[in-house]
Amino acid sequence: MKRSTIVTWTMIAVGVVLMVVSYFFLATPWCNTAVECSNPRVPFAPAIFVLGVLIAFSSAVYYAVAKD
């Protein structure tokens, strides 16, 4: 496989993993009755989630631009 393909897939993978993992870092959706439920379990988890989205889509740019 070409290096650019690997990087692209890696970026997608990292993005998706960030999204999935950070989802579990967020405040739990089923919890409403305690103070902790109002905080993400890891600080800035939503930002990590969004970062995942950005990385995943950036892969397209990388893939298009990357020189083989």
Partner: peptide, 27 residues
């Protein structure tokens, strides 16, 4: 981005609509 809660429909609005969708469209 610091405290966003997935249970709020707004989470979708800012994470998917504004961030994801806008960024994807730019790409």
């Amino acid at each position: 981005f610091r405290y966003g809660r997935p249970q709020s429909p707004f989470f979708g609005t800012f994470s998917l609509v504004v961030s994801g969708y806008l960024f994807a469209s730019l790409v």
